[in-house]
């Protein structure tokens, strides 16, 4: 179980303090599939980055299976069982797709490429560099998180840059993963929202609603 208690985050902007996250307390039960949605700038990405340790909250606590992990760094959160798929995947010259998946812990890297609809023969030995398209990079990013096989998997807008064909694959990937992982996914896509257990709507750095997918689709937006 992953839990945040009164999580806040603010930045200094033009000499003034600006609140990005305001006192967020949420609970993510084991093997739950939660979609976080809401307008741009509502604090969704910052919130999930706090969960991974990429952003340090100004106030509040993060508990993972009862343990306070607020001061743990990214590496130790990853080792404890949290993984994170970036909205904008990075390129790393000299690191091959195979290397990345092996670092992530994949014993059979080919299997994870197939899951995201990429042919291992064509992609395993390629560098994660500018020679790959945005969509390809994104799928490799998702594969690297699936390869972690961690208890909690966080995806920041996994649909961004993914074409229609692979979008079906993506939905299937999440359907399978939700059986034995906690999934926290930032998404605006109805097809992803539909298969979630819960939808959390962010607005202006706060939680506006915690509702079911049905309620969300019927118009509680």
């Amino acid at each position: 179980m992953l839990e945040t208690k009164n999580l806040s985050f603010s930045v200094e902007e033009g000499g003034k303090r600006k609140s990005i996250l305001k006192d967020i307390s949420l609970v993510f039960d084991n093997n739950q599939f939660v979609v976080i949605t809401g307008p741009n700038g509502s604090g969704k990405s910052t919130f999930v980055k706090c969960l991974m340790g990429i952003v340090a909250p100004s106030k509040g606590k993060i508990l993972f299976d009862g343990e306070d992990i607020t001061s743990l760094d990214i590496t130790n959160r990853a080792k404890n069982g949290i993984s994170f798929s970036f909205q904008q995947p990075v390129k790393i010259k000299g690191i091959k797709v195979r290397d990345l998946l092996e670092i992530a812990g994949a014993e059979k890297p080919a299997a994870f490429l197939e899951m995201v609809g990429l042919s291992p023969e064509e992609y395993l030995e390629r560098e994660i560099s500018g020679s790959l398209s945005g969509g390809e990079l994104k799928r490799i990013e998702i594969a690297s998180v699936l390869a972690r096989n961690s208890k909690v998997m966080i995806f920041d807008e996994p649909e961004a840059g993914i074409d229609l064909w692979s979008f079906n694959d993506l939905v299937n990937v999440f359907k399978k993963a939700k059986k034995n992982h906690t999934l926290i996914i930032i998404s605006h896509q109805e097809r992803i929202i539909k298969i979630a257990d819960r939808v959390i709507v962010f607005e202006d750095g706060k939680v506006k609603h915690i509702i079911t997918p049905d309620e969300f689709i019927k118009g509680v937006k």
Binding site: D73, I74, A78, Q88, I92, I95, K96, I103, R148
Partner: peptide
């Protein structure tokens, strides 16, 4: 961001740097 990415895969900052350099 390259170091952060590799840290989310369980490497320490030093390990991430040396992976990037060796690659």
């Amino acid at each position: 961001e390259q170091i952060t990415k590799l840290m989310t895969l369980g490497l320490t900052q030093t390990e991430a740097e040396s992976k990037i350099i060796n690659g």
